[in-house]
Amino acid sequence: MDAVFLTDVGLIRPQNEDDGAFLQDKHGQIIAFVADGMGGHRAGDVASRMTKEILLSKWNDRDSSFTAKEAEQWLEDTIYEVNKQLFQHASDNPECEGMGTTVVVAICNDQFVSIAHVGDSRIYLKTPEEMRQLTNDHTLVGELVRSRQITKDEAMFHPRKNVILRALGTEQSIKVDTSTIHWDEGSSLLLCSDGLTDKLNDDEINELLSSKKSIEEIGKQMIELANDRGGEDNVTVVIVCHHEEHKDVTDE
């Protein structure tokens, strides 16, 4: 597996409230995540940075490979802990009142990907045959799409598209969505903030992920396109690629 993390402040906002990372352990497992902080001057960047620090600390504290069930449980428990610490930090620091963050997290190995998410950052799975979104947006507009009151294309331009129904740090308890999918060699995973998906539709993302360019070049092109179309928001992507194994063939 290979991975890349890229983030950009965009063209309008004074600071980057997004964060993210990927990290591979000695068992070959990769954790990858994106957090999109909310709160502006009320420390959205603090919320996303704290989320990164807690996730990486918890990841480094464990010393075993996961089954799919164990991975999902670890994700759920860890995100509960993140929510607890963010909420407490906001309560203890008046300047951080109202801060929060979305999060999408994936644990990847050669056989499966276990994911967890809260908010409207997204995870896509790209296979040689198709691309599909693995997460559901926890937003008002996401609910309208799921109930078929509007289409996904209409959702991109809906006046209330930024109304988020779930976020870390804003309440004492949180509901975390988790799931596991199997993936094969030649597939890739995209984790991204809404700074990307507000500017590129699924067909455009699929086309970029289908290119023969390196995953770093693909990520840079995604961010460049989002900025070319206004760059009003921070943009963050993590791409994890499940490489095909190339075996040498020799004559016997």
Rank of each mutant, 00 (worst) to 15 (best):
S188G: 10
T178I: 09
T101M: 03
N16Y: 10
D120Q: 05
V237M: 05
T67F: 00
L140W: 08
I205F: 11
R132F: 06
V34A: 01
E72V: 00
S114R: 02
C241F: 14
R62M: 08
E143I: 14
T127R: 06
I54M: 00
H117D: 10
R146M: 05
K199Y: 15
D19I: 01
V176Y: 00
R13W: 09
C241W: 14
M99E: 04
K58T: 12
T51Y: 14
I164M: 09
D202C: 04
V103E: 00
A35V: 11
L165F: 04
S121P: 12
T139V: 09
V82N: 06
E216Q: 14
G231W: 01
Q73S: 14
L23A: 10
D248K: 13
F22K: 03
E129P: 08
S211G: 13
V105C: 10
V46H: 10
K26T: 14
L200W: 10
I79M: 03
Y124N: 10
S188W: 07
V46F: 07
A155G: 01
N93Q: 13
E232R: 01
D61G: 09
G28H: 05
T236I: 03
S65Y: 07
M222W: 04
V163P: 09
R146E: 11
L125Y: 12
T78P: 02
T102S: 08
P14Y: 13
F22Y: 15
S121L: 03
T178G: 03
S211C: 13
N201I: 00
E81N: 07
E244Q: 15
M1C: 06
E129W: 06
V249G: 02
K152G: 05
Q88R: 14
C192F: 04
R229C: 01
L6A: 09
V46D: 00
F66K: 14
L196M: 12
L191S: 07
V141S: 03
E252I: 06
D110C: 02
I218R: 15
V238G: 10
I107A: 02
A32E: 01
V249I: 11
N201V: 03
I31H: 06
D45Q: 05
I174V: 13
D63E: 13
I123G: 00
S214C: 03
W59F: 00
E130I: 06
Q29L: 11
L144G: 01
E81A: 02
A155V: 02
V103H: 02
S179A: 12
I107K: 03
V113Y: 08
L208T: 15
A167W: 00
G186Y: 05
T178K: 12
M1K: 09
L189F: 12
I54L: 08
I164A: 08
Q29R: 11
S114K: 06
D198V: 07
S211I: 10
E130P: 03
A32F: 05
G20P: 04
R62H: 04
M50F: 14
T7K: 15
V4L: 05
R132L: 08
